[in-house]
């Protein structure tokens, strides 16, 4: 990124805070991996964390997915809400995995694969990553492609497709992710592709 673009770009969140959080995270990771508490190793670890955080600062400034002159910081999101979301997702993953086990072991294999599309415009790229990853993790659905906020999802059964794109309104998961990142509640529905 050149300096002229930097001046105009609106950045959400504080870069200094991101730098501090990243350094602390990296240092904590170092401590767990090394397990040695001698002063020499602590100083080396802290120095390495600082340098790494400094060199990755421009990589972690993500341009807006909505195409506006706006940027998001990779470590700028509500941590506690994110954690609760992942705990909820963990429960969903286990529940839905049992469904897939039933599908695999069913001798008739009642599957009806289909590709569904739905539009979920969100400005924050991290929100898109979270949603796409969540869709892939919940059995029955795999994110195939994501372009300009349009999701192409491969669903293995009718139920899996309907849970993500219900007849009316919006699926539970996109709504939760949007709420997590304070995105506006908009959804446009795509047709079914076969």
């Amino acid at each position: 990124m050149n300096k002229n673009a930097d001046k105009k770009t609106k950045i959400n969140g504080s870069e200094l805070l991101q730098f501090i959080v990243l350094t602390i995270t990296l240092f904590g990771f170092w401590l767990i991996l090394s397990g040695m508490m001698k002063t020499k190793f602590l100083i080396i670890g802290f120095g390495t964390s600082l340098v790494t955080a400094w060199f990755t600062r421009s990589l972690l400034r993500l341009p807006s997915a909505a195409g506006q002159n706006e940027a998001f910081l990779a470590f700028h999101f509500p941590y506690l809400k994110y954690l609760t979301y992942w705990l909820w997702l963990l429960g969903e993953v286990v529940k839905a995995n049992i469904d897939v086990v039933k599908l695999v072991l069913d001798p008739k294999m009642p599957i009806n694969p289909q590709i569904i599309t739905f539009k979920k415009p969100m400005a924050n790229p991290i929100a898109h990553v979270t949603l796409a990853n969540s869709i892939t993790l919940t059995p029955g659905t795999v994110t195939i492609d994501l372009e300009d906020g349009v999701y192409y999802v491969h669903a293995i059964t009718d139920e899996a497709a309907r849970s993500l794109v219900p007849e009316e309104g919006e699926g539970d998961m996109p709504r939760r992710v949007a709420c997590l990142f304070h995105e506006q509640e908009t959804v446009a529905r795509g047709g079914e592709m076969s």
Binding site: V93, N97, V100, V101, V104, M109, L137, P139, V142, H154
Partner: peptide, 21 residues
């Protein structure tokens, strides 16, 4: 599941999730 499912995408369903969990 990878052995039983009919095509590439459905096999991804089996390997991508069962493995993770």
């Amino acid at each position: 599941g990878v052995l039983r499912f009919p095509d590439f995408y459905t096999r991804l369903h089996a390997s991508g999730k069962g493995d993770t969990l």
